[in-house]
Design a protein around this nucleic acid. Structure first.
Lengths: 121, 121
DNA sequence: GCTTGACCTGGAGCGCGCTCCAGGTTGAAT
DNA sequence: ATTCAACCTGGAGCGCGCTCCAGGTCAAGC
């Protein structure tokens, strides 16, 4: 089970070093292990957590919910709550996709109209 | 061709009065007609512009591009540029949808795993 | 032992997209 | 004529999610 410096963790997770510290401060990420001198030592488990957090962020989950999810993951007896949280966000994502689809339709219409304009001129 | 007070325009467009003023200041919306006393008088054409702007915003188009689109719409000889701008954003939206779909898949996996956990306990 | 670059902390700053505020004006209703 | 809600302007403030900075510490390589 190897370890990673902050720079490596940043590179692999896609978050900046500052963001990694920020997430830890905010309680999104559990406190990371340290060297005797105080430097952070990220483990594989941290990286896989970060990987999933990255995914949640990319899907638009706000920081506050991310924190909630992070907290829940530190208590093994909260699987049901985690499921609920993810289902909630899944519904939000579904809604957003529906909206984007209707946007696409509307823009296609507008583009078709513009294209007719261009032909006529 | 009826007209609308700022409050009515806000209600119908879904933007706040402050946002309407902001969009005008920023050149996203063309200068709105005024009464002799200086109050804004929105027209149907303003409302339909706002309706499309609302749609673009909801699809995540940033303010800067909105401004560009607004400017282009004030010059009738810019249909090709408008088409280009919309196509560009359409590509961004497509990318976002693809990402959301892959997010959904990943979360479904995680949920299935959590559900197995719940059954076992 | 010294250098050097990566890291540490607490706190300030930033970019976006509004949102609110103070202080003043307008105009429809009474 | 008076009231009063809705409106005006310029500019400050805010919430989010980071990002940057100053001033200091650590540790690997020479």
């Amino acid at each position: 089970m190897r370890t990673y410096t902050p720079a490596e963790a940043a590179r692999r997770s896609g978050f900046s070093i500052d963001t990694l510290r920020y997430y830890e401060r905010e309680g999104i990420l559990a406190p990371v292990a340290r060297t005797p001198g105080g430097r952070r030592v990220y483990r594989d488990s941290d990286l896989s957590t970060l990987d999933f957090l990255r995914c949640l962020r990319d899907a638009g989950m706000p920081i506050e919910r991310l924190r909630r999810y992070g907290e829940l993951c530190r208590d093994p007896d909260t699987v049901a709550e985690r499921v609920e949280l993810l289902r909630e966000h899944a519904a939000a994502v579904q809604q957003q996709m529906d909206q984007l689809r209707s946007w696409q339709a509307r823009v296609e219409e507008k583009l078709a109209w513009y294209e007719r304009q261009l032909e006529q001129s």
